[in-house]
Nucleic acid binder design. Structure first.
Lengths: 200, 200, 200, 200
DNA sequence: AGTTAATCGAGACGGTACGTCTAGTCTTATT
DNA sequence: AATAAGACTAGACGTACCGTCTCGATTAACT
């Protein structure tokens, strides 16, 4: 038997992965999510709808939720550039509003459901954080740290705690559904952000 | 309080519900939760361990998660009296710390898992809110409103938003698991609470 | 309330058996048999329809089929007097025709179904034989033996074998359903009876 | 004979049916029938004993009794060639004796139980007739018709009625169990056959 | 051009839990 | 006692998916 990967570059024998199957699977999943929750989604239904063998799915994804994450990421594709604003506070406030709005529809439901499924699969949770939350959190963090450097925000800030406070409120209402995520909530969040970031 | 039979009207015909079975089911569920997640928990395993027919479970609970909620509520029974404190702020800070600590062990995991399961069952979510969150939230709300009346806290407060901000941070870290719920987090939350409540 | 059975007999303590319940059970069973097979009949459905507790049924009958046997016997009540005829052969032939006709409707179906259920319950089979077949078989036997004594029938006859031959054919078609139990069958059976009884 | 794949057309897509599973199921059923009645037999027990998923059974058989029929047919495989004899009557008599003997053991019990189960499933009854009775009946019919052509038997015969008379007697005693299927019965049946076939 | 090897759709496989159903038993209060 | 009501344990039902496994058929890259 020869080596699988010869000098320098990748050297795959055999039939390459079918791009058509991959996108058929993602599209089928997307379509099914209109009428089904992530939990009620089944690999069999995806395979059926995509006209694909189950094994093909299992070859490339570890679980149905992993597919959903991929669908979600493709849905969001460059959807969330950090908004512009005069001050760092303005940027943060607008971003908070944006997220509240974004989470109002199907997307919010799917995020909540992925988080739910990921409670029972640590790797999935890590993966979701890496592919969905990480960049946005880093961006927000960057803005806040800039605000601190500029003297706009308090020097004593525990940045992570503040972020979890503001975005956690959104996620908590998303998940616990005990109160609406309405314009008043957006405004109040903005006020709280102002106070916390400047005074804390 | 009167006896169950007399209060409220007619005594029902037929054999009454077995208290022994009820508590066997709750105990079995409690025990199984040591080694299983809520998702991996099965009604069959509970029935088996409790020495109970499956039908008996289905007669009294709509789903396994409903049982888990009942177990959780019995676990917490008068576990969380609102702490004493000199000022309203002190009470809130101590309560936040208490919750963070409480959520660190098995209890936190179960709360997260119930929330996860409840993402796919609206009634369950309502029920969980009613039996688990509602009282504690009302208590916290009472303290904050007292603080407002006394002039200790800001008059402009959106109390619900503030509560979701503080407790949402805890729940967000519980669910997303991206950062530890450690003493530093407790301290930071306390600071943020102080700022938000007094200045906002 | 006075005692129900005083003078002349046993005086049982406690509440006596309810005649109303007994007949409600039999009537309910009778009614259900219009739309259900004996197999699909359930004790629960009988109890429900009769407005009777399940335990009451179990107290007085060992199985649902036992109830069906009782219903059947009451249905047949003095239904099958041996027909009159000039000769013994004529009596037998008419009786065969009568049975073929009787078995054509619901009654035949129920007999077949009782026999089916009784394949798995030896006591039931014995009971069914005793209450349903025994008298009629004895009567037929009597006629045939009279024919033998009179010289109308062959002296060499194995009476039981002949009976099983003639009535067995009916029961076989009733159960295996491979051929109709029609007038031609009646006629042929009569011919075979004549030959067998006289020549054998 | 050709291979299965080629004969009759296109090879089907997908994994082919497992011959090992099929025979494991039949063997398990065979074994269980030693200690259980057809009624008490359960699909779960068969699946368990065969080391097979329940779905595999349901995929290929409509009911447990259908499996039992298949087991029975495989048990009988070329078990019952029509016996040789000098005359047609001799053939019929020997065949009757053979069937009586064959039905004495486990096989008789199973035939009775299948007929019992099939009282509640018309398709099953048809299937059982086709796979178990049909060929043998046709063979007997052939012999009798030959006898008629040769002048050995009566020209007036209703062949089906005669067959049901002779074999019905056997089946009736098998099912009603009111009399033994012993050598005397064999002899009497033979006598009756002789009379009926020649004189009728 | 032929060979090689991983891919593909299809669908059968062993397994497991589901929620339903009925059996037969057992508590109640009532008659 | 016997009754109607109905809760109880037990366990099979037939279904649905799981994740794995054969199949024959494709499809490139490497001889």
């Amino acid at each position: 038997m020869k080596t699988e990967a010869t000098a320098g570059g990748r050297r795959l024998a055999g039939r390459p992965r079918s791009a058509a199957s991959r996108s058929a699977i993602l599209q089928a999943t997307h379509a099914l999510l209109d009428t089904t929750t992530v939990r009620d989604l089944t690999i069999e239904a995806i395979a059926q709808k995509a006209g694909v063998g189950k094994a093909t799915i299992y070859r490339w994804w570890p679980s149905k939720t992993a597919i959903v994450i991929e669908v979600l990421v493709e849905m969001m594709n460059s959807n969330t550039p950090l908004p512009k604003g005069e001050t760092c506070l303005a940027v943060v406030r607008q971003h908070l509003s944006l997220i509240v709005k974004q989470y109002r529809g199907r997307l919010g439901r799917i995020v909540a459901e992925i988080l739910a499924e990921a409670q029972f699969d640590a790797e999935l949770l890590t993966e979701f954080h890496r592919r969905f939350f990480a960049d946005r959190r880093a961006a927000v963090r960057g803005v806040i740290e800039a605000g601190v450097r500029d003297g706009e925000f308090s020097r004593a800030l525990d940045v992570d705690a503040v972020i979890d406070t503001l975005y956690g409120a959104i996620n908590f209402r998303l998940i616990a559904r005990h109160m609406p995520r309405d314009p008043r909530f957006e405004r109040s969040l903005g006020e709280i952000a102002a106070t916390t970031l400047r005074v804390c």
